[in-house]
C-alpha cells in the first residue's frame, strides 16, 4: 500500500510535467509546421509560365516546371568558386548557384516589358505607379529603401530591386538573394 502511494505520488508529479511538455510540444510542432509552409521569400515570389517560385527555391524543380531554357551563360569567377549559371528564357533570365551541392535560384531578372511581377510591376512603367502597387503588399517584414533611383524591397533573404531613370521610368527589375555585402 505504501509503495503504491509512493509510486502514485511520483507518477502524478511526472504526469503534470508531461502535460506541460505536451502542450509545448504541440506549440513547437505547430510553429514548426508554420515555418515549413512559408517560403523564405514571402511576398516577393515570382510567377512565370504559371509556375510560382522565388529566391532560394531549389532550381531543378523550378526549371523543370517552367520549361527548357533557350540558352545558358556560365559566369565563372576567378579560379573555381561560385559559378553563376544564367539561364535565358523568353523575357526572363534565371540565375542559379550551387550551395553545398544543391542548385538554388539566386536571381530572377526581367528582361523586357512583356513580363511583369505578380504585383503588376513591369519595365517601362512609371516608378510611382510601381511603388503604389508594391505598397499594397501588407507584410510588416517587408522593408523598402531607396538609393539613387534603385528601390530595394527586402523580405528575409530575398531582395527585389527596381531601377528607375531620371524620368521616373523603370529600366530594370531584378530579384536576387541578399549577400553579406548588402
Amino acid at each position: 500500500m505504501k509503495k503504491i502511494l509512493a509510486l502514485v505520488t511520483v507518477f502524478a508529479l511526472l504526469t503534470l510535467c508531461f502535460c506541460a511538455a505536451a502542450a509545448f510540444a504541440a506549440d513547437d510542432a505547430a510553429a514548426a509546421e508554420d515555418e515549413e509552409e512559408a517560403p523564405v521569400y514571402g511576398p516577393l515570389g515570382f510567377v512565370y509560365n504559371e509556375v510560382s517560385f522565388g529566391i532560394l527555391d531549389e532550381a531543378e524543380p523550378v526549371m523543370e516546371a517552367i520549361g527548357e531554357a533557350d540558352d545558358l551563360f556560365v559566369s565563372a569567377s576567378c579560379a573555381y568558386q561560385g559559378d553563376d549559371y544564367i539561364y535565358y528564357y523568353d523575357g526572363l533570365e534565371l540565375t542559379v548557384n550551387e550551395i553545398d551541392g544543391v542548385s538554388y535560384v539566386t536571381g530572377i531578372t526581367l528582361v523586357d516589358d512583356m513580363i511583369e511581377t505578380p504585383q503588376g510591376v513591369a519595365i517601362g512603367m512609371d516608378i510611382e505607379e510601381a511603388l503604389a502597387l508594391m505598397a499594397e503588399i501588407e507584410d510588416e517584414a517587408l522593408t523598402m529603401e531607396e538609393n539613387r533611383g534603385v528601390y530595394s524591397f527586402q523580405y528575409g533573404p530575398a531582395l527585389l530591386m527596381i531601377q528607375a531613370n531620371e524620368d521616373g521610368e523603370i529600366t530594370a527589375i531584378q530579384y536576387t538573394a541578399v549577400t553579406e555585402e548588402d
Binding site: D71, F73, S75, I86, Y88, E93, T95, G107, T109, V111, N147, R148, V150, S152, L159, M161, Q163, A172, Q174, T176, D182
Partner: peptide, 13 residues
C-alpha cells in the same frame, strides 16, 4: 562569347 546576360542592378554604386 554569344550573348551576355542583362546588366545586374547596382544597389550601391
Amino acid at each position: 562569347m554569344k550573348r551576355l546576360p542583362s546588366v545586374p542592378i547596382l544597389k550601391d554604386p
